[in-house]
């Protein structure tokens, strides 16, 4: 029994993100099949009018030339529309132009803003989407999408860290982005300038927190090494 458990291959469900080895020799394939793509993109076009509802999905299926019954292919119902929006907009970030020479922080801010602005067309309905994402059965895939978004942004800006800060950076960016997204649903300012300011403040806060944690751990490391070396110089054999 124990042997069987120990020899079971690493399950992808244990990890927080299911993104795996990224190859540069093959194009990234879309997670949606062409029919799914057609129905969901047509359905998303109906969202400003019908909201994130089964009606929008059914209308999308009709628009794409399928019968109404085909929406049974989407067991998650209206959440399929939300998920489609999240995935396609995340993947669209890769085509955004980043200015060379700007700092990593400003690149992160630029991409997060681009992603927020992608919600602008359906911002009146976005609270419905947030409610769907917060439904218990959809929470895991919503959180996964959020972490994949943070991962995508940090990859696109060329972040190279592969230690514990890999986790803290993604967590900080996810938190900043999610709170800004919520803020944006109530933002009435022209072209969402208040959301931009809100996002900048959140990013600055997480940067400050990150810097102070980093300096504290560095200080502790230096102090303890100093202590050990001091004791060694006194002739203690450690």
């Amino acid at each position: 029994m124990i042997r069987r458990v120990l020899h079971r291959p690493p399950s992808p469900h244990l990890v927080f993100t299911k993104s795996t080895y990224h190859s540069y020799e093959h194009e990234r394939t879309s997670p949606f099949t062409p029919p799914e793509d057609a129905v969901l993109s047509a359905g998303l076009a109906q969202v400003p009018k019908l909201g994130f509802t089964v009606d929008a999905l059914a209308q999308g299926a009709r628009d794409a030339g399928y019968r109404d019954v085909s929406i049974n292919l989407f067991p998650a119902g209206p959440f399929a529309l939300v998920h489609y929006h999240l995935v396609t907009q995340r993947r669209a970030l890769a085509s955004k132009q980043l200015e060379q020479g700007t700092s990593v922080d400003s690149k992160i801010r630029k991409l997060a803003l681009e992603r927020l602005h992608a919600n602008a067309g359906i911002i009146d309905r976005w609270q419905e989407a947030l409610a769907l994402m917060a439904t218990p059965s959809h929470v895991p895939s919503s959180i996964r999408e959020l972490s994949l978004l943070a991962d995508e942004i940090l990859f696109l800006v060329g972040d190279q860290s592969v230690n514990t800060s890999w986790y803290t950076k993604r967590l900080a960016l996810s938190t900043a982005y999610a709170s800004s997204e919520l803020f944006m649903t109530t933002d009435k300012s022209p072209n969402f300038t208040e959301t931009e300011a809100f996002l900048s403040r959140r990013l600055l806060e997480s940067k400050k927190l990150g810097t102070s944690i980093h300096s504290t751990t560095t200080w502790l490391g230096v102090q303890s090494m100093g202590l050990v070396n001091g004791l060694r110089s006194k002739g203690l054999r450690i």
């Binding site: 795996t20 990859f155 190279q160 592969v162």
Partner: peptide, 15 residues
Amino acid sequence: SNLLAKHRIRPTAMY
């Protein structure tokens, strides 16, 4: 480290 960053692989959480 470079391979992990290049291929977008998560470092171990037990770091």
